[in-house]
Design a protein around this nucleic acid. Structure first.
Lengths: 209, 209
DNA sequence: TATAAATCCCCCACAAGGGGGGAGTTTCTT
DNA sequence: AAGAAACTCCCCCCTTGTGGGGGATTTATA
């Protein structure tokens, strides 16, 4: 039986890189580059007729950025998969791209092999990140191991961060209202703050919760 | 100049897989398998003399699990890198492994090439995940795009979830106290809840914030 | 034998929360 | 042009929660 090839659209403002991608992908069996664009606006305008399976997207585009383009593209073609290929590797940009619906994030030092591997993984329903991106993402999961807070204090601060009040926390932990209050007093002293909001902010900044 | 080879310890209870890894890695230039163990306890006991750069760790070990072993290993050798290789791919296990300090997470269908690539990426200071793991991780970043909440409501609920009170939120958004209160009333109505804590819980469960 | 952690107790004053009502404007969609 | 959402602001009410002050006891850990 005939395997339909994967339809790919490339959005990249640098002509050399754009043509590089086109050449790289175009010569591979089972993949075809439908069109390439230098701005997200142009790509979005032609999205319905191009009808791609996957869009390779740069972040630093003139006009609307790749990040902002993601939800617009997804609203037109909800099933389309997005692979970000860019030089930008700041935490904020990466997280915004992933939160907006990207399935992959490669920084531009990625080899041709790595790019094709990512496209394959994404088309098979997975996701893909280059090593430096994966590291940032993983780091966002990790706690500070030198927390000044005790186990109980950390636990209680986590519940506070969920918006629970002292009464509820006390009930859930099978301890007294006053005990929770004491813990909170100690938390505030250790973090040098004087309110819930400040405690939560400080704790999150230092990855204590 | 002489490049020292990467010292690797393997912890895996299945003998076939364990020896498979040992063979796979042992034949590669620049990598040496110092020791292999079938339990985390044994590996931890010998950690100081083995002095590995990287530990390949299974999750489903007899005795203490791979997940629980991570902080214990890190407390003995803080610089050691951890690569999880396992069949387990539930969200909870993956997140706990990454939160505990793993630098990589491969599910066991990973090819030999992929395993070596991961080890290389991790040793170079990056991180690595197989496609299915990356997908779960990325999905955890993504919002529900069909939120019943308006932009403003979502924004305000996010601030509430940071522990801020109405007064502070009003000031930061340059709107009146009463306006914030109205938004909160509407949020509660839409989410069918009657308190901060319930609103935060419901919103998080449905990935509205 | 200190020190930290976890538990519990009392006081007080003020801030904050939640429910009820209504009403004006803008902005977007049909 | 009509209607619906969204965003803004105002009043009433009473209950609950919060933060700061001062303690105490027990257990475990260094």
């Amino acid at each position: 039986m005939e395997e339909p090839s994967v339809r790919i659209v490339i959005v990249e403002d640098d002509k050399v890189i754009r043509e590089g991608y086109r050449f790289l992908i175009g010569e591979k069996q089972g993949y075809q580059v439908i069109n390439t664009y230098s701005t997200a606006e142009q790509a979005i305008k032609k999205l319905n007729e191009d009808n791609p399976d996957l869009v390779m997207l740069d972040v630093g585009l003139p006009g609307i950025s790749g990040i902002e383009a993601i939800p617009k593209i997804k609203s037109i073609l909800p099933q389309v998969l997005i692979l970000i290929c860019t030089v930008h590797d700041t935490e904020e940009i990466i997280f915004r791209a992933l939160a907006n619906g990207a399935s992959g994030y490669l920084t531009k030092n990625s080899s041709a092999v790595k790019i094709m591997e990512s496209i394959r993984e994404i088309m098979q329903g997975g996701a893909s990140m280059s090593a430096n991106v994966a590291q940032l993402v993983i780091r966002s999961f990790q706690r500070n191991s030198h927390s000044p807070l005790s186990r109980r204090e950390t636990q209680i601060l986590e519940e506070i961060a969920k918006g629970k009040n002292r009464r509820v926390i006390a009930d859930e932990l099978f301890i007294d209202n006053e005990t929770v209050k004491s813990h909170i007093k100690n938390i505030y002293a250790k973090l040098n703050v004087h309110s819930k909001a400040d405690a939560i902010r400080t704790a999150k900044e230092n990855k204590l919760i």
